[in-house]
């Protein structure tokens, strides 16, 4: 236990752009800590010279031809937008660099 601390949870939440409610942080930290503690058992497995599996199928070289397909009509593109102006999506002002 004590694998993940409150400050780690806050850092990771900020990376994930989630503002946690103050009351939530303690509880989350405890729950995540016990999950990570359970996950620690993976250390028992000898994975020396084992290749990681990121795809279970042994497939390679799946391509598409460089052929143009119709785009989506602009009305459809913006149909679901919570904020739009003309054919643009509209978001709160980006103060350059500050959010990147």
């Amino acid at each position: 236990m004590g694998i993940i601390k409150k400050k780690d949870v806050l850092y990771v939440a900020s990376l994930a752009r989630i503002k946690l409610a103050d009351g939530q942080i303690e509880g989350f930290t405890g729950q995540l800590d016990s999950i990570l503690d359970y996950i620690k058992q993976l250390d028992e497995v000898d994975t020396e010279s084992v290749q990681p599996t990121s795809h279970v199928l042994p497939m390679v070289n799946v391509f598409r031809k460089d052929d143009v397909k119709p785009s989506l009509p602009q009305e459809k593109v913006l149909e679901n937008a919570p904020g739009k102006e003309g054919y643009f999506f509209k978001v709160p002002k980006v103060i350059d660099g500050a959010e990147k």
Binding site: R17, I18, K19, L20, P92, K93, V94, I95, A98, E99
Partner: peptide, 13 residues
């Protein structure tokens, strides 16, 4: 917090 970041954070919260 800058406005866009605030929108992200609270939307996902």
């Amino acid at each position: 917090t800058p406005p866009l970041l605030r929108m992200y954070n609270s939307t996902r919260r």
